[in-house]
Amino acid sequence: MTALGLLTPGHSAEDDYPRIEQLLGSDIRVDTAHTGIGEDTSRADTPGGTDSAERLAEGVAALRLAGVEAVVWASTSGSFGHGWEGAQEQVRTLARLAGMPASSTSFAFVHAAGEMGVRRVAVGATYPPDVAELFARFLRAGGLEVTGVRSSGAGTAAEAATWEEEDLLTLARAADTADAEAVLLPDTALRTAAHLPLLEKALSKPVLTASQVTVWEGLRLADRRVNAPSLGTLFTREPRVQA
Rank of each mutant, 00 (worst) to 15 (best):
F107Y: 03
A95W: 14
V30G: 14
D176K: 14
P101A: 14
A182M: 05
R92H: 15
F135S: 02
E166S: 13
G5W: 13
T41P: 09
F80R: 06
G86N: 14
G114C: 04
T192G: 12
G78W: 11
D223E: 12
W84G: 02
E14V: 03
H111M: 11
A243N: 02
D179T: 03
S152P: 00
L185E: 07
D27E: 15
A202Q: 13
T126H: 07
E164S: 08
L23H: 07
M1F: 04
G48K: 01
E85A: 08
V91P: 01
E181A: 05
T93M: 14
S26V: 12
M1G: 02
A222P: 00
S77E: 08
R64P: 03
F107E: 05
G153Y: 02
L234M: 07
R55C: 06
D27F: 08
F107A: 02
L56R: 15
V149P: 15
R240P: 00
A125R: 10
G67M: 07
Q90A: 06
A202P: 05
Q90E: 12
Q88T: 07
E58M: 10
A13N: 00
R140N: 01
H82T: 04
T162G: 08
F135A: 08
A182W: 09
R240I: 08
T188D: 09
V241D: 04
R137G: 13
A53S: 03
G142P: 04
E165Y: 10
V131M: 00
R240L: 15
A108C: 06
V207L: 06
R64Q: 12
R220N: 10
H111I: 05
E217S: 04
G218M: 05
A53M: 00
I28H: 06
L221R: 03
A172F: 15
Q212A: 05
A74I: 03
W216F: 03
R240N: 12
V91L: 13
Y17V: 04
I28W: 12
A57R: 14
L199G: 02
Y127N: 01
A161H: 09
L168C: 01
G5P: 10
D179K: 01
G83R: 11
D16L: 02
S106K: 01
I37P: 00
L7I: 04
T50M: 13
V241R: 06
T93A: 12
R120Y: 02
D179N: 04
E238L: 12
E217N: 06
Y17C: 05
Q22L: 07
A108G: 06
G59D: 10
P229R: 14
L56D: 14
D187C: 15
S52W: 00
H195M: 08
R220P: 01
E54W: 07
T233V: 07
L208K: 09
A95T: 08
L56A: 06
L4D: 07
P9E: 10
H111C: 07
L208D: 11
A193E: 07
A182L: 05
K201D: 06
A178Q: 13
R119Y: 10
F80P: 09
G232L: 09
S151F: 10
G25N: 10
L169E: 13
F138L: 03
A74K: 01
A175L: 02
